[in-house]
Amino acid sequence: MNGLVGTDVAGTAATWVAAVMTVAVWSYFTGAGRIFRLAQYLLAGLATGFLVLVSLREVLVPRLVSPLLADPAGDLIPWIGLALVGLLVGARWLPPLAGSLPIALLVAATTAFALGGAVVGTLLPQLGASMLPPAPQPADLVNGAISAAITGLVLFGFLHGVRRGRVAGLAAGTGRWLLLGGIGGWLGFLLVSRLALLVDRVGFLLGDWLGLVP
């Protein structure tokens, strides 16, 4: 039992509907493209509907509507927020500049956090971790050296369109092969992950739906 639905009548109905949905999606393999497309339409509608619900109920109402209703003359920020949300929702019917203002704000925040996070949260700590440990055991030293060398070569692999000598070119080429190997390794992790999902789904059909396994 996946715990998303109960064991009462509604839960039993949910299990049957979920099984039908699973079969509908997998009907793609039999060439039943129409059923699969309808399942995709339903998924898009439900996912968007859920996003709209949580955005309205858990963000816009408590952070925007309620403060404005409680104290309209109080904080100015909710009023600005209301105007910007209005511009965003009505962008289709407004001049391009009006719709681009809230987008600009979102881009600014996304960019600033991407920059700050990448440098302080990833770049500096990972550079530090790629250094060899200060007082290593012999095995740690070897492993650390291998790992640091691989990291360095992969970083060389990022050099595109930069003039370089024969050694640097060789390092960059090796780095790109290592990068490919790493991406291939990630493909292996991805396959394992997706297989676990497929096994879970088949288990749901056999267990929760058909009751063939406990």
């Binding site: 709209v52 963000v59 952070r63 927020g81 910007l84 949300v85 965003l88 929702v89 962008a91 979102l106």
Partner: peptide
């Protein structure tokens, strides 16, 4: 605070 509200507004949009 504005960005959080705007992100929700984007979902609504």
């Amino acid at each position: 605070r504005l960005v959080v509200v705007l992100a929700a507004g984007a979902a609504l949009a």
